[in-house]
Write a protein that binds this DNA or RNA. Structure first.
Lengths: 357, 357
DNA sequence: GAGGTTGGAGAGAGCGCTCTCGGCAGCAGC
DNA sequence: GCTGCTGCCGAGAGCGCTCTCTCCAACCTC
């Protein structure tokens, strides 16, 4: 019935190895400037005692935490429940653990929670933050910039470039507050999708847009317009990224333009809804109407009837890249950081051909 | 171009309020034993300086971290990409933040990573762990029990009750190493599913089992057998929880027992595969063959044709409960903990009727 | 071989907090 | 009016680490 054995300290290792605390510290942190025989002796002592550095004590003095926060602001279960975040987290996790950083997950529920997150980040518990900001009117990005924590955004934040919330009053300066983000090429992907449809000989191409308070939806719509510059405005309907929204939009479109011969939906979920409505109206896919989605959300895109032609983005890579970018800024010293003018990284997308177009 | 302003310390607050550090500490931690006027003064000073306690310094002395690890061991992208974990995380997050605890996410990639997780947990960086162990042969649960960290498992761990890895050599004792877990009522849910089919008058009910190295799959199979005690063994096929596996199993079943009139699939993904094969074989659902799934995985269950009748489990609640259980053990003092004989909590499931059965 | 130079090791301060302890009021009891 | 409490508050040690500063030995240089 022994008391919980307290874990060994640097002191204990030093005693065992017959050296000073400082030497053990040096060895544990890379071993530079310590002669080989001593290094060896310390290593053995560490091994034998099962020594693990006390992170709290360490960060008390270094002021580093080797931890970054991942902030996911998503009140809507629907979106949260899709595989998107899981994959992104996975990419982030891989990159972080490869550099011995911990991942502190912050999920927010509604607006009130934003303040909590802001407080947490400003509290200096983590070295940096990875933030997913989905909505244009979201206060979170501003709050976070205000917290003065190095941050990388997932998805282009809602404010336009050059219009950053620079002057947030008491924002601790010294941090360059340029918004760094990683996004996939929503606009380019949309262009590819529409070009593919046009290449198939379709002339009346409709678009089911996503919720336009999200930059991804706006960008995909822009991509559509890039190719269909002179498109009939009635060929565009706004959905909300849900299957039900896709159904609604599809009905509208069929109603307004019965002669449409193709649909580009801003995500696979809406495309699946559209497919259902098309079938219901007796339109054959892809013979009468060709359909392209976006996301390549596997459980959906592969299961629809017919399987969905869509635009794939490498979600996991996006997460990995976000983490890599953040770690790089954390590592740099100020002078170098000044030269780091990266503001946005845009990942390519690819068209995945299945049966629907 | 000011230097990064270092955040205020207890000392600073004390000076401003004209009291000692100890008094500020008392106020910050609840204010017991400090007279009202002083409390007020300290509160104001905290407010004015924007003081936030330094968590590292605090845990250095308290040896608590107000943080728990969530360990998700899932090398397979497929499973990880389903909404399951997202919802569970959400539940966990809600409960943890309600009690001012942080969530440290640990995702593992393959076996080698298990050691890393074990080391991390044993390193005493977190107060407890929430672990999702999916496979029967998984070494992780053992490793974690060995780390001597209070743990709650999500899903019944792979070892049978009463056969815990008690003696893991150098496991720091003092912790009661009973495995606590939260699971949904896989067996009961399966029984409900099959009873529903039987209640519809179906007599040749088949089962597509999940990967049987997972307790959930085993339990669902057991539930099936509970109701169909004398079922033809050829009516059972093992899938792997994927749509493709469901297709394969369905083909097998149709081949072996062309007269089957119902199928209970151990998850919705496999059910969707089964539906496709049934359609391909000209069987009408539910007229010729009724189909029930499991999980109520929304993007899938609602989108199949016909929409899937399935068993719903409250995933988010499961997560919340796991966190609650863990926090309770962390809060308790040893004597009380001894009386806490909770080992498993099983959450109820409900049948959701849609069109497939 | 005296003085200078270097690289490796130890001593010790101190990060920001908590918590025990001791002091000192204020009050009751005799 | 003195002892003995009780209740508040401050002093101070110390959590486990990093990091600077100092010291010392070994090696050059002329």
């Amino acid at each position: 019935m022994s008391e919980a054995v307290s874990r060994p300290t640097l002191e204990a290792v030093a005693a065992r190895a017959g050296v000073s605390r400082a030497t053990v510290s040096r060895v544990v942190n890379g071993g530079d400037g310590v002669r080989e025989p001593l290094v060896e002796r310390v290593r053995r002592a560490v091994e034998e005692l099962g020594y693990v550095p006390n992170q709290a004590a360490r960060s008390l003095v270094t002021k580093r935490h080797d931890a970054v926060a991942v902030v996911i602001a998503e009140p809507e279960t629907r979106v949260f429940a899709d595989p998107f975040f899981a994959l992104q987290l996975r990419g982030i996790s891989k990159e972080l653990t490869a550099h011995d950083n911990q991942l502190v997950l912050l999920l927010t529920e509604g607006r009130d929670d934003h303040a909590r997150v802001g407080r947490y980040l400003a509290g200096g518990h983590v070295d940096g933050a990875l933030v997913f900001s989905l909505h244009l009117d979201d206060a979170l990005p501003g709050l976070i910039q205000g917290a003065g924590v190095p941050t990388v955004f997932g998805g282009r934040p809602g404010w336009s470039d050059g219009n950053l919330p620079q002057t947030l009053g008491s924002a601790p300066s010294g941090q360059d507050s340029t918004a760094v983000y990683v996004d996939s090429d929503n606009r380019g992907g949309a262009r590819d999708a529409v070009r593919h449809l046009v290449g198939l000989g379709r002339r009346r191409v409709a678009h089911i847009a996503g919720a336009l308070d999200q930059t991804s939806a706006v960008d995909r719509l822009d991509g559509f317009r890039d190719v269909m510059a002179d498109a009939d405005p009635r060929l565009i309907a706004e959905g909300d990224f849900t299957p039900a929204g896709g159904e609604r939009a599809m009905r509208e479109l069929l109603d307004r333009c019965p002669d449409l011969d193709a649909v580009f939906a801003a995500n696979d979920l809406m495309a699946s809804g559209a497919l259902r409505v098309l079938r219901e109206h007796g339109r054959r896919v892809p013979d009468d109407v060709a359909v392209v989605g976006f996301d390549d959300m596997l459980p959906v895109a592969e299961q629809t009837d017919p399987p969905l032609t869509t635009i794939r983005q490498d979600i996991e890579e996006m997460g990995r890249l976000m983490a890599r970018l953040l770690l790089r800024r954390l590592r740099r010293n100020p002078t170098e950081a000044d030269q780091d003018t990266t503001t946005g990284v845009v990942l390519p997308t690819t068209l995945v051909r299945r049966a629907s177009a």
